[in-house]
């Protein structure tokens, strides 16, 4: 556990020195929300239906940017080899990366949601539930995303390949998270069905990723 924290801490420290990835994620998420507000007009009538979709498109697309850099940044100066030489379990690298990616995602979410509220003059009836759904959805996204980010790290067209292979696999997360977000925003309290899928998805993919991560970064 300490190793994971160290790796995550190292990632975040290098990230906050340049803020390169974080800034582009934030700007991109902002742009998605703004483009949506242009596309749907200033005060769309069916904002309740549009809101969850907009939010999750912004989260996943901006998250994709961060994920594609997550391992790619380790390619410079042979950092990935250094990481693999660490006397820690390979799955610790995965968990560390998951932690740092999650933190970056949460920062992005925490900026995007207020901007969304401001731009669309939206009020959230039950913020705690919304946070719960977003956390669950983000975790599922990051668990699979980190594994596939490592998978594409040595591929030449990785920025192209990652979205193509990640989106089909995270569709359950997107579907359930959008549904649950929509229900929370429209004041429906029964989100158990979606939460169950999100939870199962997260748990299964976390365990599977721990087991097969070492095969991904073998070379």
């Amino acid at each position: 556990m300490r190793h994971c924290l160290n790796i995550a801490w190292k990632d975040l420290k290098t990230e906050f020195r340049t803020k390169q990835m974080l800034n582009s994620m934030l700007l991109f998420a902002l742009l998605v929300v703004i483009i949506f507000s242009f596309a749907f007009g200033p005060y769309p009538e069916n904002i309740d239906q549009l809101a969850p979709g907009m939010l999750w498109v912004a989260f996943t697309f901006a998250g994709m940017l961060g994920l594609s850099r997550s391992f790619a940044s380790e390619k410079e100066n042979g950092c990935l080899d250094g990481l693999k030489l660490c006397p820690v379990d390979r799955s610790d690298i995965y968990v560390g990366k998951v932690m740092s990616n999650t933190v970056l995602m949460f920062i992005m979410v925490m900026v995007t949601v207020p901007v969304f509220i401001v731009l669309f003059d939206y009020s959230i009836p039950d913020p705690l539930r919304l946070i719960f759904v977003i956390v669950l959805g983000t975790l599922g996204f990051v668990f699979v995303g980190t594994l596939l980010s490592a998978l594409t790290v040595n591929v030449r067209a990785r920025e192209l390949l990652l979205p193509v292979i990640l989106f089909p696999v995270i569709l359950p997360v997107i579907i359930s998270a959008v549904l649950a977000t929509g229900e929370v925003l429209s004041g429906i309290n029964d989100i158990w069905a979606e939460v169950r899928i999100l939870g199962t998805y997260g748990a299964i993919f976390f365990i599977v990723s721990l087991l097969i991560f070492e095969y991904v970064i073998e070379d």
Binding site: V144, L147, L148, L151, N154, V155, I165, P168, V169, L171, P172, I175, S176, L179, A193, E194, I197, T200, Y201, I204, F205, V208, I212, Y215, V216, E218, D219
Partner: peptide, 28 residues
């Protein structure tokens, strides 16, 4: 060698996603 290994990992991940997709599509 790398193709085989990475494809195998993705083959496992993709297959595990299938039942989950089905359940989420059902409620959707």
């Amino acid at each position: 060698e790398r193709k085989a290994r990475l494809a195998a990992v993705f083959g496992i991940v993709a297959f595990i996603g299938v039942p989950l997709s089905h359940f989420s599509v059902m409620i959707w």
